[in-house]
Structures are given as C-alpha cells and as structure tokens.
Design a protein around this nucleic acid. Structure first.
Lengths: 145, 145
DNA sequence: TATTGTTATACTCTATAACTATA
DNA sequence: TATAGTTATAGAGTATAACAATA
C-alpha cells in the first residue's frame, strides 16, 4: 500500500492545501477563523436562527456559539431573541459584517476560480458529481464506525 | 455566494467525512492517531530516516517526532542511529508494527474501494487528474499568502 | 555555522457534558 | 420532560522557537 496513491490521503492533503489557500484571504488580514468565516457566509443571505446556521454549515452548536460570540464582540453580528421561541436566537449580520463579507467574498471567489481554471469542463463536472457521491458513501462508512 | 456551492467548502466537508471514515478503522480499535497511521504506512515499505518520512507524508518534523515516540513506546517501531550521519535516525517497523499494519491496511483499502465504487471510470480518472492539478494551484495560492 | 531531530511552551480546536431558560 | 443555546473543562492537535548533538 502506497500512501501517496491512497485516495483518502490524497484528498486530505488537497483539502488542507485548498483550505489554507482560502484561509489566506480571511485569517491574517481580517482575523477570522474558519468557523467565523462560515457563519458570516451562512448569514449574508439573511438572518437565521442558530439551529439553521448549524444546518447550513456542518458546524455544531458549540462551534456556532463561539464563532457568534466572537463575531458579536467584533461588531459584525447581532443576536436577537426569536419572538416565536424565546429559547432561540435570531442571528443577523450588522452593516459592518455585511461590508466585511463583501470585501472578502470576491477574493475567496477569485481563488476558487483560479483553482477550478486548472480543470477542463469534463473534469469539473466529474469532480462535482464525485464530491456528492463520495460524501454520501463516506456518511455510510462513518455510521458503521 | 452560497456556501453549499462553494468548491473549497464542499471539498473540506468531503475530506473531513472521508478522513473520519478511514480513521474509523485505526483510531478506536487500535488507538492510533492519523499521524501515527501515516508514519506506519510510510515505513511499511522499508526503513527510512525521519527526514524521508517528512518528505513522504506532509507531516513536519515535530509531528513525526511525536508520532514516532508513541509508536516506539507501543513497541511498533525502532529508532537506530544512522551510521552515515549520526544526527539522523533510521526508523524501522518492528514485527509487531508490520503485523498491525497488515491488520489495518485491508480494512482501510476496503473502505477506499467502497468509496470509489460510487464513481464510474471516467469520474474516477477525472477526479484523479483533478486532485493533482488542484493541489498544484493550491500550492501557488498558499505561497501568495 | 548549518542541519537533524527533540523538547518546551503557549495556543487553538475538539468532544463531552453540565447548565440556563424556555417549551 | 425535552429543546435551544451557553458555559465549563479536559484532551488533542498546532505553531514557534529554543535546544543538544553532530556535520
């Protein structure tokens, strides 16, 4: 067995490199963590409850809670009580939060485009389908333990 | 910008799921960390120096040093002085280390096969090429910072 | 002086669970 | 009694650098 050819290894190495490449546009310059960036991206489309952010991000409730606390402290996000269920919180970006996202998103998208430019159309579509299919199978294996 | 459709996000989510699926075969059952598993896999082909393991795994010298210390304590690996350069160490799996790898590798490869079975030949080849091309571009972006 | 590998330290992340306030 | 979200805490992983031995 050759580690270099082992698909899960190659995928992990690639994903780490891509993550670092994207983090480059938000971590040092804007002092955001990956989780904070994800919460920002989830909320830029509009306000939602913590539980909905969890559903949109693969973050768990603690990760969201911490990311939200830091974003709130930085003035990028507000928490309001949900009138329908006062245990819940409605999360909403502030103008500053939206402005920050609008500065970062084009840089992140430019890097995404640069990455995908390496692929031809057939490769891009195959990759797209492969990601969905593989994720489904990985979920099955995870459940198996 | 939709996070669900953002390629780096989808890739990270997939790679996490695949990593957990593979870790399932070595972490709980055999109490190995991902780094220890990688060092084991790197050395199963034969003895090599710490520096060579670094080159074969994307681990850095500290990660290798710690993984090696734990594997040695578990009797899975030996460290010998390198006669050519007495600063260096030659790392070599013990019989127990090789036996452990031979128990785990088929399970890991079965999971890899199960994942890749979701793809047809064209998708598999496209994915293969895409991984190499994307990794190269990601490296360029990382250097840009 | 530079390099191999180890150790130290501080920092971040993660996982588990206890907790508050509602329902 | 269950759920939404927060806080606490311990463990694992990460990053930086100082260090000993050797080149």
């Amino acid at each position: 067995m050759d580690l270099q050819q082992f698909f899960p290894y190659r995928l992990a190495v690639l994903a780490d490199a891509v993550s670092r490449a994207i983090a480059g546009v938000y971590s040092e310059r804007y002092d955001l963590s990956r989780d904070e960036w994800r919460v920002l991206a989830a909320l830029v489309g509009g306000a939602m409850r913590t539980a909905d952010v969890i559903g949109h991000t693969t973050l768990d409730k603690m990760q969201v809670s911490r990311a939200v606390a830091r974003l709130e402290a930085a003035g990028l996000l507000e928490r309001d009580a949900d009138p329908d269920d006062r245990r819940a919180r409605v999360l909403r970006l502030t103008a500053a939060g939206r402005a920050l996202f609008r500065r970062i998103a084009p840089l992140a998208q430019a890097r995404e485009a640069f990455l995908l430019d390496a692929l031809d159309d057939a490769e891009r579509h195959a990759l797209d389908r492969a990601i969905d299919k593989l994720r489904e199978r990985a979920r099955l294996l995870e459940r198996a333990g």
